[in-house]
């Protein structure tokens, strides 16, 4: 055994083994912390956008049309963001276990910490309007984002059930022209429609319209509301 130190020192010298520089360990730790913080941001972002989409959902008011409240609630779940959020929260948990000293927490404690961090930061991001802005940015820059991520899209793309949403293209007297979420043009008769106070019937404004189809491409409106729900209007007002 006494020879072991000599043997090891000989190996160290003959193979020119040197200690790995400190900066490489510091870099590794920094990357681990960075990935951990990034996963917290992503987890929080997931929570924030999920909250935003749920808050802006109109399942309570629209559930009366063709489905039960429970069905409408299920339909209102932003599934894509919920799955992404669960994945990101798992990333927070995984990275928490891999930061130096992260092993000290039990799996349950780490999971609770990850969920709490994501919920707290996510609530702040949502309350401060960041979630709404990011959702808009995604909708603008990612093709089909809203169609896939926002459950309201599938809800409001059912003219046969009296539900249309889209952007006002032009207005003329008691009629407005609306391009729906599938880019189909509709002539909307608004003569007897109840129009929400916050809705300006001007080109470019996005609206939700309830009513019924009277002819091909012609829709009789009974109610017109802004596309952005109450919560988003509140965000816009606060900003």
């Amino acid at each position: 055994m006494e020879k072991l130190s000599k043997k090891i020192l000989t190996q160290i010298k003959s193979e020119k083994i040197t200690p790995i520089p400190k900066w490489r360990f510091l870099l590794k730790d920094s990357v681990t912390y960075f990935v951990f913080i990034l996963s917290i941001f992503l987890g929080s972002l997931g929570v924030a956008i999920t909250m935003f989409l749920v808050e802006n959902n109109d399942y309570l008011e629209t559930s009366v049309y063709d489905m039960s409240l429970a069905q409408a609630m299920v339909m209102s779940v932003p599934l894509l963001w919920l799955i992404l959020t669960l994945f990101f929260v798992f990333l927070v948990y995984y990275n928490l276990k891999h930061i130096p000293d992260g092993y000290r927490w039990t799996a349950a404690k780490s999971l609770i910490i990850s969920i709490l961090i994501s919920l707290i930061v996510g609530s702040v991001l949502n309350a401060s309007g960041v979630a709404a802005r990011l959702n808009d940015i995604f909708a603008e820059h990612i093709p089909n984002y809203s169609r896939v991520a926002d459950p309201r899209y599938s809800y409001w793309m059912r003219p046969e059930l009296g539900l249309i949403a889209g952007e006002i293209v032009s207005t003329e007297g008691n009629e407005i022209e609306v391009k729906d979420l599938n880019d189909k043009l509709w002539v909307i008769d608004i003569e007897n429609a109840r129009i929400a106070n916050v809705v300006d019937l001007v080109a470019g404004r996005r609206v939700r319209i309830s009513g019924e189809i009277t002819d091909n491409n012609v829709f009789y409106a009974t109610q017109i509301r802004p596309w952005n729900g109450r919560m988003q209007n509140l965000h816009n007002t606060l900003q």
Partner: peptide, 9 residues
């Protein structure tokens, strides 16, 4: 040998 290589950590 591993210990020596990782002494800085």
């Amino acid at each position: 040998i591993k210990t020596y290589r990782n002494l800085n950590s």
